[in-house]
């Protein structure tokens, strides 16, 4: 592992200089694809099937960016990254955008030379335990051994939570999420902690899914979203508005199914979104129909959510990720 990280660092020494000056969008157009950093396999967010095809809500962000630029949502290459490697990979220019269930925090936004381009999933950290442990609340976990992943906000949150509630704990931190699941499954820990969405996603990897349960407490705010390098506003805007396009499309009721019938309609807001009015694509540096391409090829935010998260075996409900107009907090500025 040491050698891998050192290689990444050496790469960063040299690659950093190559990528700061050049505009990411020009570079992406030049090479013909978006290089997207994703997880090493988190069902529903970024996961690959046996043919090597990636899918998930985080993957859909990458596909949306590709659809906006190339009118081809498949013009994406994926780089699976561990939580340790992800920021260095982005800083060094190895990837163009990081869409890997990454929590937006002050340190990451201000000290790492990165910008968070919005939130595509509002999450919170939770705990999973074996049912036979007889625990119903996280406050009963005094003295527990807790499995988690190194280099994540969960490691810090769990320390804060147990300290503030005056409970003892031991933390066992692994590098890869699969190792965390395997260790929890083999009885190394009483508790498995990560973002709640992650708990539901990883639960399906366990030997006996029904023997485990997620505790009701959510101990932190984990707004997850795509990340880009600081200092390239054009690219930042494009990633940000690719996400907003999907959310706005859901709000206006435009889906990949009905987009054809919505074209040439009367609603000026829909006209602006689909590029029939205004110069929004031009301002972003892409074609006028950028948002229409995203919705046609990837779908709107709600479709993406339903396709990857609200299905078996995950069955995650929209919850706070419902649109603001339907009682949630997903809210996108208008395309105007």
């Amino acid at each position: 592992m040491k050698t891998i990280t050192s290689t990444v660092m050496l790469a960063s020494l040299f690659a950093v200089s190559a990528n700061t000056s050049a505009a990411t969008l020009d570079e992406v157009v030049g090479k013909g694809h978006v290089q997207c950093g994703v997880s090493q396999g988190l069902p529903g967010f970024s996961n690959f099937d046996d043919k090597g095809n990636w899918s998930g809500v985080d993957v859909d962000i990458c596909r949306a960016i590709a659809a906006a630029i190339f009118n081809d949502s498949e013009a994406v290459k994926y780089t699976p990254l561990s939580s340790k490697e992800r920021f260095t990979a982005l800083q060094s220019g190895e990837i163009d955008v990081l869409s890997r269930n990454t929590t937006w925090t002050a340190t990451r936004d201000t000290a790492l030379g990165l910008n968070f381009a919005g939130v595509n999933y509002y999450d919170g950290q939770g705990f999973m335990v074996r049912k036979d442990l007889g625990v119903n609340s996280a406050l009963e976990l005094d003295g527990a051994a807790i499995c988690t992943q190194t280099g994540t906000t969960t490691e810090l949150n769990v320390a804060d939570y147990f300290r503030s509630n005056d409970m003892a704990y031991t933390v066992v931190a692994y590098e890869k999420s699969d190792e965390v699941v395997a260790a929890y499954d083999s009885g190394r820990c009483d508790v498995y902690t990560t973002d709640q969405s992650g708990l539901y996603a990883q639960r399906i990897k366990l030997k006996d899914v029904s023997a485990h349960k997620v505790l009701p407490e959510v101990i932190s705010k984990e707004p997850l979203g795509p990340v880009v390098r600081q200092g390239d506003d054009q690219w930042f805007n494009l990633v940000k508005w690719s996400l907003y396009c999907m959310i706005n499309a859901e709000e206006m009721g435009i889906t990949s199914q009905n987009i054809k019938s919505k074209m040439n309609g009367k609603d000026p807001a829909v006209k602006r979104l689909l590029g029939e009015e205004g110069a929004f694509g031009e301002n972003l540096g892409v074609s006028p129909t950028w948002c229409g391409n995203i919705v046609a090829q990837v779908g709107n935010y709600g479709e993406s959510f339903a396709r990857h998260l609200s299905v078996d075996p995950l069955n995650i409900s929209r919850g706070v990720n419902e649109l603001w107009s339907k009682g949630g907090i997903q809210y996108a500025p208008p395309i105007r």
Binding site: M1, K2, L13, T88, Q91, G151, Y174, E179
Partner: peptide, 27 residues
């Protein structure tokens, strides 16, 4: 240093793992 794979908290796991990620100062 391979211990980082099995959660033994040695230098690579603690320092280039958790500390690196919390501070982001890779170099």
């Amino acid at each position: 240093s391979l211990a980082t794979a099995i959660a033994y908290p040695e230098l690579v796991s603690v320092f280039t793992g958790t500390v690196l990620n919390q501070t982001g100062q890779a170099v």
